[in-house]
């Protein structure tokens, strides 16, 4: 029975990894259990939202990674414009793929 995955360059043994993971979890549990007992839930206060009143229904999915999307705005506008959703364009892309492959491989 071979438990070590040999990838030609490196190797990977999940069982050792899991054992290490359990060890780390145990250590962190020990540290956590020595913590302050008197800390109560619900004393953290309101979420700080740049000084504005926080939106009532929390952060929505489309607000996540706002900075990333803002940075790559040009790329995303380009991409969304390419994904038109018109079936004619889908077929045109397929024909283009075929034509490029024909030029690359057959000629």
């Amino acid at each position: 029975m071979n438990f070590v995955l040999d990838t030609g360059v490196g190797f990977w043994n999940p069982l050792v990894f899991v054992a290490g993971l359990l060890l780390v979890l145990l250590v962190s549990y020990l540290i956590w259990s020595r913590g302050e007992k008197g800390c109560q839930r619900g004393v953290q206060g309101e979420a700080f939202f740049s000084g504005d009143p926080a939106p009532r229904d929390g952060v929505r999915a489309q607000d996540l990674y706002w900075g990333f999307m803002e940075t790559f705005k040009v790329y995303y506008e380009w991409m969304v414009n390419l994904h038109t959703g018109v079936i004619n364009d889908y077929v045109a892309w397929f024909i283009a793929l075929m034509a490029v492959l024909l030029i690359l491989v057959a000629l």
Binding site: M98, L101, V105
Partner: peptide
């Protein structure tokens, strides 16, 4: 080769 390209692009699709 033309046939291969047609098959490959159809299955890639």
């Amino acid at each position: 080769e033309v046939a291969m390209v047609l098959l490959i692009s159809a299955f890639l699709l």
